[in-house]
């Protein structure tokens, strides 16, 4: 039946297939694919051995390590903060909820350079937070915590906005049922709510991680750019360009690109899972 219907699929009813596909492909090619192809071509032109040397040099390995560690911790922070915010914003009614909700998008709309400027000033020795923190012996600016804060700030919205709609859609009847059956609030959360929001949550975290890995504007202000300690990968790529070492820059950029694509793929998988869960739930 299904195969037969697939074979005699009716011809496309709606117009505009050629036009919209053409526009999409043209723009995609000119604006996104050809420039990326230029990067890949340059990377391919380096030769395998030099490429390996570029990406496994001390400075590159250190930069990747710093970037991954900082992005990982920033994502972890956002995973919990994002979940908390999504929960509070969907489940509770209180004054200022709308404002709190609006604030979640600030890191999206605020230019990253401005975020970097503000966070650096805020956490440096003569800023609001930096003074007390440094008095207590915490060095934030020009150290790993600074990078983590900058990354966490710029990727706040991802987890919140991924989890929020799923929490809203969750059928309250199931929770009620669980409660009636004597489940503790923790059990309700752990057994009923968490499985439902897990794909969306993980998807949000993946995108948040991808964003953190690539974050530049906010981080360069606050990082201190100390080789081996606070030099992030995209800054190293930038420095390689400034040093007139394009091959080195392309090599690092390619590794970052692959990481981003991998995370993107992962997040799309999670999204499909999430969509399936929502459809199945209804």
């Amino acid at each position: 039946m299904t195969t037969a219907s697939a074979r005699i699929r009716p011809k496309r009813v709606l117009p505009g297939f050629t036009l919209s596909l053409g526009t999409t492909l043209l723009y995609l090619t000119v604006i996104i694919l050809i420039p990326i192809a230029a990067l890949v071509l340059t990377g391919a032109g380096i030769g395998w051995e030099r490429f390996l040397r570029f990406v496994t040099s001390n400075s590159a390995l250190n930069a990747f390590r710093v970037t991954l560690v900082a992005a990982g911790i920033a994502t972890l922070i956002n995973a919990f903060y994002g979940l908390l915010m999504a929960w509070v914003l969907t489940r509770y009614e209180f004054r200022g909820r709308v404002i709190l909700d609006g604030l979640m998008d600030i890191p999206f709309a605020l230019p990253t350079a401005v975020a970097g400027l503000a966070l650096t000033a805020l956490f440096s020795a003569n800023g609001w937070f930096g003074g007390p923190l440094e008095a207590a012996g915490f060095q934030v600016v020009y150290a790993l915590p600074g990078i983590i804060i900058a990354m966490a700030f710029t990727s706040i919205p991802f987890v919140v906005r991924a989890v929020q709609p799923v929490l809203e859609d969750l059928d309250p009847a199931i929770e009620e049922a669980a409660k009636t059956l004597g489940a503790t609030p923790w059990q309700v959360f752990y057994r009923v709510i968490l499985p439902a929001i897990l794909p969306a949550w993980l998807g949000g975290c993946t995108v948040s991680m991808a964003r953190s890995l690539g974050e530049f504007g906010a981080v360069v202000f606050i990082a201190g750019n100390l080789p081996g300690q606070t030099e992030i990968a995209s800054l190293l790529a930038f420095i390689r360009i400034e040093e007139d070492n394009y091959a080195g820059a392309a090599a690092i950029a390619l590794v970052l690109l692959c990481m981003a694509l991998l995370l993107l793929l992962l997040s799309n998988l999670f999204q499909i899972r999430a969509a399936r869960y929502r459809e199945g739930g209804k």
Partner: peptide, 18 residues
Amino acid sequence: PVFDTGGRAATQTFAERE
């Protein structure tokens, strides 16, 4: 402690951020 990419950023690090 900090390697800025340009001379002026280094100045700011020393003078403004102490």
